[in-house]
């Protein structure tokens, strides 16, 4: 049986005192194509407690559909839980005026730590001109940008990621799902660009991938996420803590890297 103290503690208690988790890829609220039993703020916080998650960063499901209503909704929630719950401002390139107005209000919302792009859902390439105002804004403030990435995508594949990483070195890009399906190319991008991190949502379930990421890119370039309220964090945690990697790597992925990325970007 696995000999990792971190894994043993999670198995026995559901949490790890010495390694509280930082979840960099979460959402909030119900969503069209899936029934989610635990999507209210109270339910999500109960899940965080149950799984030993210290803090999460979310983009609201409503915001992915309607940036005006949804970003406001997300902020109204995170501002009730300062220090525990942070937000990404969703930027939809099809609504540049609304996006610009929300960027101008960014500084008034201390729970924001960055921007969220979902090029696949918005059917617009990450490299497209309409993302430029948001990327320039993020670069000027050295923000985090969590972008959905997926393999073989016309909108957000590894090549798109590489282009924006090259163009905006001041931005810290989290590659949501690590370009699922084109993992090797995504690892190459993360290895080449210091400002690109691999984010594990859904990718964690692929057997052998976490080991490969640690070996070829380094544990210091991987962050934890699980799309809460979609997925039970314990599933994702199990994939990380039972991977064939060191406890140092587990700690880096589950906590330390995210804390380092958030340093200076958390305002509450």
């Amino acid at each position: 049986m696995i000999d990792s103290p971190i894994a043993r503690e999670f198995l026995e208690t559901g949490r790890c005192q010495s390694c509280p988790i930082i979840d960099m890829h979460a959402h909030y609220g119900p969503f069209s194509g899936i029934y989610m039993p635990n999507h209210t703020p109270e339910q999500m916080l109960a899940t965080l407690d149950r799984c030993g998650v210290e803090l999460i960063v979310s983009s609201g499901h409503t915001a992915l559909e309607d940036v005006v209503r949804g970003n406001a909704e997300m902020l109204s929630i995170t501002e009730r839980y300062p220090g525990r719950w942070y937000a990404y401002l969703v930027y939809n390139p099809h609504y540049p005026a609304e996006g610009q107005a929300q960027l101008e209000e960014y500084d008034r919302h201390p729970t924001l730590v960055g921007l969220k792009f979902h090029p696949s859902m918005h059917a617009y390439p990450l490299t497209g001109e309409a993302y430029r105002p948001a990327l320039e804004f993020a670069a000027a403030r050295r923000l985090i940008v969590l972008t959905h990435t997926w393999g073989d995508s016309p909108y957000n594949g590894p090549e798109h990621l590489a282009q924006v990483a090259e163009r905006y070195p001041e931005v810290t890009f989290l590659a949501g799902h690590s370009c699922h399906g084109e993992f090797q190319k995504c690892m190459e991008v993360a290895r080449k660009y210091p400002n690109v991190y691999l984010e594990l949502t859904a990718a964690y379930a692929v057997r052998g991938l976490i080991e490969q990421m640690v070996e070829t890119v380094g544990a210091h370039k991987i962050v934890f996420g699980c799309d809460l309220p979609w997925f039970d964090p314990h599933y994702a945690i199990g994939c990380v803590v039972m991977a064939h990697i060191s406890d140092g790597a587990r700690r880096a992925i589950l906590r330390e890297n995210a804390l380092r990325i958030l340093e200076g970007r958390r305002r509450v």
């Binding site: 198995l11 559901g14 057997r207 314990h234 994702a236 199990g238 039972m242 991977a243």
Partner: peptide, 18 residues
């Protein structure tokens, strides 16, 4: 669903399910 998927995920999820 091993080996397409890692064993650790469902093992931990079931061990800690409420």
């Amino acid at each position: 669903n091993f080996p397409a998927n890692a064993m650790g995920g469902p093992r931990m999820m079931l061990a800690r399910a409420e």
